[in-house]
């Protein structure tokens, strides 16, 4: 485990922002940290990044309790981000890298590497305030990874980026992950969660309400929905034990009692004359799971 959060509580005045949250982030994973606005995600991230300390509970980074050296192993790009506007790009990166424990020499080397990689070699003397927002975001991303953190925490990393730059950063994140860096990825964009994450946790009202591997969670929430697409007219008289949920012109969706029935359903279709062009299990989207689970826990809280 790169990160282990154990029974963590954080209270502001009388407001309990994080209420007994536990979770483990496996080494090398891309871990989605999800939750509605005000759920306690930022409070949790601030504790992981040592900005604040938990009132109760323990947070361990790579098996070690968080300490003064921990920030050097963590790279954090907050959602509310910014840079010193009047500083030059190079100076800014050098400063932030040195604060993360790099020597001047190491920092310059790392900055050169990334500037070449992002094709912005000649940006060193430019002032931050003279850059476009998207460009600033690139600099911000570089600043976050210059010191090669073991754990990278990205809070909505793609907001404000155009599709080209989004892909560029996405590719970088993948490459970093492949090189062994674990990533915590906080976002509201569920399609990005499905695309990038292998593990997730869903926080609502300061509590961990859903947690595990992405594929396992999808299985857990599946409703045995199967969709059949045909060429030509849909056949009639399919046996009643397959409950029809919806029907279109060339496609029909059934709900099965048990996933083992899927072959029977396909057989029933194969016995007809109609040619089957597609047969698939419909897994719930994370959007649905997210909404469902948040609503459930909101009701639990209301009761």
């Amino acid at each position: 485990m790169i990160l282990s959060v154990q029974n963590v509580v954080k209270t502001y005045g009388t407001y309990r922002a994080v209420n007994n949250v536990s979770l483990d982030v496996p080494k090398g994973s891309v871990f989605g940290l999800l939750g509605p606005n005000g759920a306690g995600k930022t409070s949790l991230i601030r504790m992981i990044t040592t900005i604040t300390a938990p009132d109760e509970g323990v947070i361990k980074l790579d098996g070690e309790k968080l300490n003064a050296r921990s920030p050097e192993k963590i790279g954090y790009m907050p959602e509310e981000r910014g840079l010193y506007k009047k500083m030059k790009v190079g100076e800014q990166l050098l400063y932030l890298a040195q604060l993360k424990g790099l020597s001047k020499h190491q920092a310059v080397e790392a900055i050169d590497y990334w500037m070449v990689k992002f094709d912005i070699k000649d940006w060193w003397p430019k002032k931050i305030e003279d850059l476009s927002k998207g460009m600033q975001q690139k600099i911000q991303f570089i600043a976050t990874i210059l010191h090669r953190p073991e754990l990278l925490i990205l809070d909505e990393p793609f907001t404000g980026l155009d599709p080209i730059n989004t892909n560029l950063i996405k590719d970088e994140i993948r490459q970093l992950n492949e090189s062994g860096i674990s990533i915590i990825f906080s976002t509201h964009r569920m399609e990005q969660v499905e695309e990038m994450c292998d593990h997730i946790v869903l926080i609502n009202k300061g509590q961990n309400v859903l947690y595990g591997e992405v594929q396992a969670i999808k299985k857990q929430y599946k409703q045995n929905l199967y969709r059949v697409e045909t060429e030509g007219v849909l056949p009639t008289n399919i046996p009643d034990r397959f409950t029809e949920v919806s029907r279109g012109k060339n496609a029909v969706t059934y709900q099965l009692h048990d996933e083992s029935q899927s072959n029977e359903l396909l057989k029933a279709f194969l016995q007809k004359d109609t040619r089957v062009t597609k047969f698939e299990e419909i897994l719930p989207t994370f959007n649905e799971i997210f909404i469902k689970r948040v609503e459930e826990t909101d009701q639990e809280g209301a009761e």
Binding site: I51, G82, L83, K85, L99, A143
Partner: peptide, 14 residues
């Protein structure tokens, strides 16, 4: 207001 502060806080003590 620049919002740099959260980045700074993740590197140094306030």
């Amino acid at each position: 207001t620049n919002r740099i502060v959260e980045v700074m806080m993740s590197s140094v003590r306030p």
